[in-house]
């Protein structure tokens, strides 16, 4: 009797614990992303102790910056129920054109102006996306596939195909500014580049826009249900134009960081990395159908994707298997997300 009693009490306790976890996960899907990050890190760290180093953290932060800026933009559009496939082409066109202009006409340009130019160029191209999506009433996927080809074709046909190898001193120096740096025991230099702060700032700004402004409310409302949002009187045109312009501006900045950290402007770069970015946003808990997601979740998704791409050699996965592992991991994580939601 007492035995049965204690069993039922135990069972009940477990039930409440499980339901609490479930409820918490439903409210905050990014906790699941965090769990995957920790699990992966513990696994790789146990396979190879060298993984657990400060320089690993520095490198992950550096690799996350450009993809993180892209992801914030994609997240904003995804939250409003759209999708953007042209942001890498926007970044490439903007970064290459601005670099060329700066090199030929204004090599002494201050970095603030360079970034302002890249952001404005990106915003302008994003604006074209926004106007087309709204004006044509077409699915944003179709529109942005079209503009991706358009922007990239324009870049390679009219702007140039030759790499810019000698960046102006200020741009080259910008990529080398360190927040922290140290020399390891083996005499290897490691540093955390200062440009990661741009991602921090952009994240705070995006969070503020989505959670503290009227346009943020409108974005989630439209992503939740377009007809209802329209009936509630949200200005759909303004939202469409805003989200694509904002994403374009972030892409322009990301492109410029890419140039400064690589110390060369290659017009063939960036396009092709869209899938990684979209995977990051979805693994961060945003639904591909819109209306949900958070900025911290998106950033965790970015860390997860960057982590997967940068630990395989560490974990001893042979080159031939790396793509299989990345694909399987994303499939598995995505499936777990879906299963968790259906329950």
């Amino acid at each position: 009797m007492s035995c049965a009693n204690s069993l039922s009490v135990d069972g009940g306790g477990e039930f409440t614990f499980r339901s609490r976890v479930k409820k918490r996960l439903d409210n905050r899907p990014e906790l699941f992303t965090l769990f995957l990050i920790v699990a992966l890190s513990v696994f790789v760290g146990s396979v190879n102790r060298d993984f657990l180093q400060v320089s690993t953290f520095f490198d992950l932060a550096r690799s996350s910056t450009v993809i993180g800026l892209f992801a914030l933009g994609v997240f904003v559009i995804l939250a409003a129920g759209g999708i953007d496939l042209s942001f890498t082409a926007i970044a490439a066109l903007s970064m290459y054109s601005v670099t060329k202009l700066v090199v030929s006409y204004f090599p002494e340009a201050p970095m603030l102006l360079v970034f302002l130019a890249a952001a404005s160029g990106g915003a302008l191209l994003g604006l074209i996306n926004g106007l087309l999506v709204h004006g044509l009433k077409a699915p944003s996927m179709i529109v942005t596939i079209g503009t991706q080809y358009l922007f990239r074709g324009f870049l390679l046909s009219f702007v140039g195909t030759v790499w810019v190898l000698s960046l102006p001193d200020k741009m080259e120096a910008f990529g080398k500014i360190a927040l922290f740096s140290f020399v390891s025991k083996q005499g290897t230099h490691a540093m955390l580049p200062a440009f990661v702060l741009i991602l921090v700032f952009a994240s705070l700004l995006t969070w503020w826009i989505l959670n503290r402004t009227l346009i943020g409310k409108a974005i989630f409302a439209i992503g939740g249900s377009l007809p209802i949002a329209e009936r509630l009187g949200y200005n759909v045109r303004a939202v469409h134009i805003f989200i694509f312009t904002y994403t374009g501006a972030l892409a322009g900045i990301a492109g410029m960081i890419h140039v400064c950290s690589n110390r060369l402007a290659n017009p063939f770069d960036l396009v092709g990395s869209e899938i990684d970015v979209i995977a990051a946003v979805v693994l961060g808990g945003a639904r591909i159908t819109g209306g949900t997601g958070t900025v911290p979740g998106t950033l965790l998704g970015v860390v997860l994707v960057v982590l997967i791409n940068n630990v395989l050699i560490m974990a001893g996965v042979p080159s031939t298997w790396q793509r299989v592992i990345v694909g399987a991991f994303i499939l598995l994580a995505g499936a777990l997300f879906l299963l968790r939601r259906k329950r």
Partner: peptide
């Protein structure tokens, strides 16, 4: 036989990982 995809940035990241390992 690490794959670089002829992408200088990818190659940079992989080279750093190998140097750490």
């Amino acid at each position: 036989k690490n794959e670089s995809f002829d992408d200088a940035n990818r190659t940079y990241e992989k080279a750093k990982e190998i140097l750490r390992k």
